[in-house]
Design a binder for these strands. Structure first.
Length: 311
RNA sequence: CGCGGGGUAGAGCAGUCUGGUAGCUCGUCGGGCUCAUAACCCGGAGGUCAUGUGGUUCAAAUCCCAUCCCCGCAA
């Protein structure tokens, strides 16, 4: 069976790696063009491209899917099925209609909740009870297609974006393979999404990462772990950004203290008043410095107690 | 070559502008105080100041040059 795999980040590369173990699949890969990335704007290939090259799969990196050039590529590859995982662009209708067995997408949430670009971060930031992944036939809209298979688990207190993403990429890869096999056999049972239950998970922006402690301690804690290990939540201390990597909830009840005020500093961390409850910062990264425990941050910088975080 | 901050004792920092004996907080080791202690007091050990056996100088953590590494912004 000829499969065209479309994906870009590491989350997608895990699925590609899994499919690559299936010797009967003839895989071609489409991924985003290399982009200048990082501190020195170095042209960097996507995680999926690296994975594809490691297996010797043909790789295509069209700037656009809408012009004629990609039509020729599609015709040349002539896939029986297209598998899409976090590719980063909506597919035009002619592609959706092309493969005989359809276009199957792996999405990082339990649809119809958290449609969109950043479902995993948003699930953790919202502190959902159950998280999961869904495979679906791709529709014209954003993550609107009929659902095929799901996998889910309970969100643990110590989970963060990193652990959940890691788990979902692995379980999602198995789920995608399962769905691909069932598509091949013709044993899938598509279930339409209930539009009225749909929610959206837009891309994470800078504003999503800012923490001013005005919400509850639990909200702040969920934001911090939902953004760990990237791109990280941050606040502002004395005019400089302070990234926050780890935290714990000290208490959840309101106590009328000014949000963002540093109440106490000791070897356990930095205790901060929130709109509701108190949060203890455990691991931070000051501007221009490396990651350090909050206790280390306190040393050498004098007392932080009474200072205000967030502006 | 996108812009910028940083690399000093096990950890976190000051000292660099204005070259001249290596400092602070904590940890660690020893001693003291105490019914006792994570508290307090006294003392000790621990540093080629990222790298170059680079340049300038009577003298370099400090000024100049090159390289490596970490981080913030931007994308």
């Amino acid at each position: 069976m000829k499969v065209l795999f479309m994906g870009t980040p590491e989350f997608a590369a895990v699925s590609l790696r899994r499919l690559a173990k299936e010797k009967d699949l003839r895989i071609s890969v489409v991924t985003q063009p290399d982009r200048p990335q990082g501190r020195h704007m170095i042209l960097t290939p996507s995680a999926v491209k690296k994975e594809a090259l490691a297996h010797g799969f043909p790789v295509f990196q069209p700037e656009s899917l809408k012009d004629g050039a990609f039509m020729e590529t599609l015709a040349a590859v002539n896939p029986d099925l297209i598998a899409v995982v976090a590719y980063g662009k909506l597919l035009p209708e002619y592609i959706l209609d092309y493969p005989r067995l359809g276009c199957i997408n792996l999405h990082g949430s339990l649809l119809p909740a958290y449609r969109g670009a950043a479902p995993i971060q948003r699930m953790v930031m919202d502190g959902v009870k159950i998280y999961g992944v869904t495979t679906m036939y791709m529709g014209k809209g954003l993550d609107t297609g009929d659902m095929l298979e799901k996998w889910s688990a309970r969100l643990q207190d110590d989970d963060d974006f990193g652990t959940v993403s890691d788990r979902l990429s692995k379980e999602g890869a198995e789920l995608l393979l399962s769905t691909v096999r069932k598509a091949e056999e013709g044993t899938l049972h598509p279930i339409p999404q209930k539009e009225e239950e749909a929610t959206y998970a837009p891309k994470i922006g800078k504003a999503d990462c800012f923490l001013n402690f005005e919400g509850s301690a639990r909200e702040a804690h969920n934001r911090i772990r939902g953004l760990f290990p990237v791109p990280l939540a941050y606040t502002v201390l004395a005019g400089k950004t302070l990234k926050i990597l780890k935290s714990e909830i000290d208490c959840e009840k309101g106590n009328g203290e000014e949000p963002g005020r540093v109440l106490h500093c000791d070897e356990r961390g930095i205790l901060v008043a929130c709109g509701e409850g108190r949060l203890r910062l455990l691991t931070v990264r000051p501007e221009g410095k490396g990651t350090m425990s909050a206790a280390d941050f306190i040393k050498g910088r004098g007392i932080l107690q009474g200072q205000k975080l967030g502006h």
